[in-house]
């Protein structure tokens, strides 16, 4: 029942987004469409690119209604229509062999593999740092400020340096991208995990003291299980951050490989459709990863009796 009741509003929002998008395509592409129509011999108003230069896009669309259908079918639109992106996605995922350099499945996998490795490194580092921070006051004082500082530096500035430095010592391909991806994803894990490991209150800690429990027992039996809901919330943020990190790292990495590489070559050649389809692919990947973590979260919390 709940699904049926929420389906309506969700569909309305999606329909509104597509409607706005389709309307926006007309003014965004009208100048290019008129120029092409004029070259092909059609009559347009006013004639000559010079005369149209300072005119508003909406004004041009109103005066050249016959050209409007062409705004949805340009080879290199400024704003591609959703169906053009869908067609490009179909072409580059279903029709192309996945070994092809033009296959988005190939590029998607390049990005996904670096993202997963980076996410794994980031999560492991985040959990280890959090455990250290919770158990050692010195680490709390010394590591936490650096962790926060690390996130204030724009990743766009860090990524090329890491790529260049690692390249100079002969490390290329997956690893540099994974490191940048880990750099973005460890932080939410540290913050969430520190918070989670610290949730047991004084009474809970006293109870274990009355059993004369050691640190190890306190960690595995109390702190860790208490932190799991926080960990999963952090992991969802971390996996999305890992994907962003990988894509950013793929820009300076060169070679046009991965979704970041597709976006970069797309912008070199004015191929907005290529950029948008890489974006959609990245969004689908992120949604899939977050969904997967939600699933693991639900299963493990239910096993632990923390959710009904």
């Amino acid at each position: 029942m709940a699904h049926v009741r929420t389906a309506g509003p969700v569909l309305v929002v999606v329909a509104a987004i597509f409607a706005i998008w389709y309307v926006a395509v007309i003014p965004m592409n009208i100048k290019d469409a008129i120029t092409q129509a004029e070259r092909a011999g059609a009559t347009v108003s006013p004639e000559g690119a010079q005369a149209r230069r300072d005119m508003s896009a909406i004004g041009l669309a109103v005066r050249n209604t016959a050209v409007i259908p062409a705004t949805y079918a340009l080879d290199r639109p400024r704003l591609p229509a959703p169906h053009q992106i869908a067609a490009e996605l179909w072409d580059t995922t279903i029709d192309k062999k996945i070994t092809s350099k033009r296959s988005l499945v190939f590029h998607g996998w390049v990005t996904l593999s670096a993202t997963l490795l980076g996410f794994a490194i980031g999560t492991a580092a985040g959990i280890l740092l959090a455990v250290g921070i919770v158990h050692s006051r010195a680490m709390d004082m010394s590591v936490m400020p650096w962790a926060i500082a690390s996130q204030t530096i724009p990743i766009l500035a860090i990524a090329p340096m890491v790529i260049v430095v690692l390249n100079s010592i002969g490390v290329q391909g997956l690893i540099p991208k994974a490191i940048i991806s880990a750099y973005l994803s460890f932080f939410p894990v540290v913050v969430g995990m520190v918070k989670g490991l610290r949730t047991p209150d004084a009474m809970q800690m006293d109870l274990l003291r009355t059993y004369n429990a050691n640190r190890n027992q306190t960690f595995w039996r109390l702190r860790l299980p208490a932190s799991l809901p926080f960990l999963f919330a952090s992991l969802k943020i971390a996996v999305a951050a890992a994907l962003v990190g990988t894509i950013v790292a793929e820009l300076p990495a060169g070679g046009g490989r991965g979704l970041g590489g597709r976006m970069l070559t797309g912008s070199y050649y004015g191929q907005m459709i290529q950029i948008w389809s890489a974006l959609v692919m990245a969004a689908l990947l992120a949604a899939g990863l977050v969904f997967l973590i939600s699933l693991i979260e639900r299963i493990s919390l239910r096993r632990l009796g923390l959710a009904s």
Partner: peptide, 12 residues
């Protein structure tokens, strides 16, 4: 054995 004001059972 010590019993606190709150039961403090582990929910998991």
């Amino acid at each position: 054995g010590y019993v606190f004001q709150a039961a403090g059972l582990y929910p998991w």
